[in-house]
Amino acid sequence: MSFFRKLKERVTNQTDSMTDKFKDGLQKTRDSFSEKMNSLAAKYRTVDEDFFEELEELLISADVGVNTVMELVDELRDEAKLKNVKNSRDILPIISEKLTERLDFTGHDSELTMNPDGMTVILFVGVNGVGKTTTIGKLAHHFKQSDQKVVLAAGDTFRAGAIEQLAVWGERVGVDVIKQAEGSDPAAVMYDAIHAARSRGANVLLCDTAGRLQNKVNLMKELEKVKRVIQREVPSAPHEVLLVLDATTGQNAMAQAKQFKEATDVSGIVLTKLDGTAKGGIVLAIRNELDIPVKFVGLGEKMDDLQPFQAEQFTYGLFQNMVEKEED
């Protein structure tokens, strides 16, 4: 049985609404990508250098990092030689397999680490405008659905209107937001929030921070301090440090992942704005080089548009049209 069919079987076994949502959200990404893969296969009947060069470009067009693409395509060249693959259609499953391999994280580490005895603290970090506050609102909703008591900490005290933005989300979802005035010390907000959340008996505390570009040393130091204060108050915390990445971002996402990992030891990625035409392929490179798993993807502006990341679904989404063609 071909790899595609196996993949499809595994995926169709989990046809709940969540999977549908994931699929629908990825519609545009999938359409354009698999269309291109198909036309690539149609254009080059045989697997030759031109085929590989265009494949290279196709993957680069999905923002998969340049280095990762070169590596991947080299691997495919070897594999094609080894298995004596001549027809371009036959190499598509191998491409898909290699991609899934790189996205598939061992075990269940795309699930969030929760504190077994006490309050779980999750810190959100990232550059400006990636969707940290929105993601927190959505994740608060996600937790509330499973009857957790959630409190939000308005740690973006810098950007105008950021505190109000989180407050609106708090109202929408129906959870408390701990905040201080604009311009106050974000570490102090966290200190306050932890104590307030404790006294309210919260299970989950989601901490917002101001967006910052990773090359601003002082701002990264400030973030380290925020984390230290959290750690001092709850020694096992933060249980997750989630880096929010915009799927539209190109190669710079790698630099973001590196710098934020260094400063705050990022434990997972939330890939936002995947409902557009951007592919977010850079997560492949990030997983490759830094081994940070993707935990959630943002697929729209509504409260329930945040979905747990499923590597198989993600790749299946990219290749779905091809799977169906193969079966015809």
Partner: peptide, 12 residues
């Protein structure tokens, strides 16, 4: 447009 935008910048 965000200066960090990747390949999708053309589509946008």
């Amino acid at each position: 447009v965000d200066a960090m935008t990747g390949q999708d910048a053309v589509n946008v």
